[in-house]
Amino acid sequence: MKEFSYIITDKDGIHARPAGELVKIAKEFESNILIRANEKDGDCKRIFTVMALGVKKGQEVTLRFEGPDEDKAFEAVTGFMKEKL
């Protein structure tokens, strides 16, 4: 299992479009990816779930990766977040 915490720096937070991109990347992997923010959590592969977290700039998001390709998933998702969010 791997974990990653990150504070969102994008001015718009996790809006519809970045949520869509995040979900798209998460779906490429077999591992379970859990996203947690604002004391709510859910499956990072579901766009409604991710959008419903309503994450804004300055808020912390924690991701948990668990599964056969967790290392690769970790790398891809954290890379995306650091670059785009």
């Binding site: 479009r17 499956d43 592969k45 579901r46 779930t49």
Partner: peptide
Amino acid sequence: AAIFEIHGMMLEDGDY
């Protein structure tokens, strides 16, 4: 235009 891509993803989504 991105909104329509998001709409498409919503329809691929497990929750829905």
